[in-house]
Design a protein around this nucleic acid. Sequence first.
RNA 1: GGAGAAAUGGCAGAGUGGUCGAAUGCGGCAGUCUUGAAAACUGUUGAGGGUCACACCUCCGGGGGUUCGAAUCCCUCUUUCUCCGCCA
Length: 423
Amino acid sequence: MLQVPFIRENKDAVVARLAIRNLDAKPLIEEVLVLDEKRRSIQAELDGVLAESNKISKDIGALYKSGKADEANALKTKTGELKEQSKTLGDLLNETADALTQLLYKIPNVPNEKVPAGNSDADNVETFREGDFPILHENAKPHWELVKDYNIIDFELGNKITGAGFPVYIGKGARLQRALIAYFLDKNTKAGYTEYQLPHLINEASGIGTGQLPDKEGQMYHVTEDNLYLIPTAEVPGTNLFRDTLLNESDLPITITGYTPCFRREAGSYGAHVRGLNRLHQFDKVEIIRVEHPENSYKALDGMVAHIQGILKELELPYRILTLCGGDVTFASALTYDFEVFSTAQEKWLEVSSVSNFETFQANRLKLRFKNSDGKNELAHTLNGSSLALPRILASILENYQTPEGIKVPKVLVPYCGFEMIN
RNA sequence: GGAGAAAUGGCAGAGUGGUCGAAUGCGGCAGUCUUGAAAACUGUUGAGGGUCACACCUCCGGGGGUUCGAAUCCCUCUUUCUCCGCCA
């Protein structure tokens, strides 16, 4: 969430920047300022009452000590009234502060200057493209047919056990998936990221910390019995490692990577674009997460982009990078780049990574701070990105690497797989 | 699941009703010394709100209560530790 002092000092700029998201934030921002003003004036009034009551209590203590019990008892009657007042004011203060917080939860992050205007994913701007589209043989098939031919992924079995969107990986399909995970983790750790194994269930506080809660509750699987949620991405447990944390400046940057399954309800998604591996309720992903000094965060974002480019180049998949427009950039992000690979048999670009700088938006909720060189506590910047999401990478490998004799395994993966061909 | 103990500043750890936002140690920062560093010594150092700056207010795991007054007493929740049971 945005910081109130920041809103107070940059009111017009905040409204103007949020307009890039096609959001008329003016009424929201006005309300924030009114509530903030109200909160502060109630606070001041309450402080005065408490100060007086504290003073009387001290006097009473002193009177008892010097044996003047009568005078002390006389003073006691006075505090009753003050107590009433402070209770009323305290309730009012809480109410106002809660209302302010709820309002702040509704305001998305201020987009970076690089975010282009636009309404939907159609308006995202392609900023880079690399790699040639492979020329496929005549009988080339989409991956959902290939996986049947070679019996490496079974969607029907998943339907039986769980439901749509929970595929079962078999034999070389399972092995290829595991190879990709190992390869991604190796690339990330070689680039300096520390590998973590993270919980796959998170509590409510964690959901609030990274912004899934309270608004996007319906997108996560909720275990009501224990009030826990299945993670939609490793970003949630990974970033929440640093909730309520005060770091030293020298601790920065913090760079972690982790493989986790991801669970998404995807309520409202249906149709051809969810075919096969394109959109699942459970999928695997390797994530990279960084906690950065505000001065370095955009350089770090560029570094993450370059890192992911390196992986896609090694896999020899044609890819492009999009700068997400105001209408598509996620709630908490200030700037997001999406990576898409071209899946040849479907003739479709598939999103395989999303790399974002959240600036202080998450850190403010998380209370993730560091002590800066002036000795002041300052909010850190958080960033994350997929490196990479498995199913769509798998889909594009299967489609792009198919030959009449079978599916070739990309060169870098052969040592991880132990075979060169799926046939 | 049952029984007991505990939760205090960046960390460790004192503190059982007023003089406690809190001893002490470590760590951090500044200085002395040194060519430089280390060591030693000296000083300084919790967080949030509020103010031009002070004042002032809040915070000792979370929530509630007793009291004129709570880190300290009571209730409750959460977490951790020990013992017992169960278990991959």
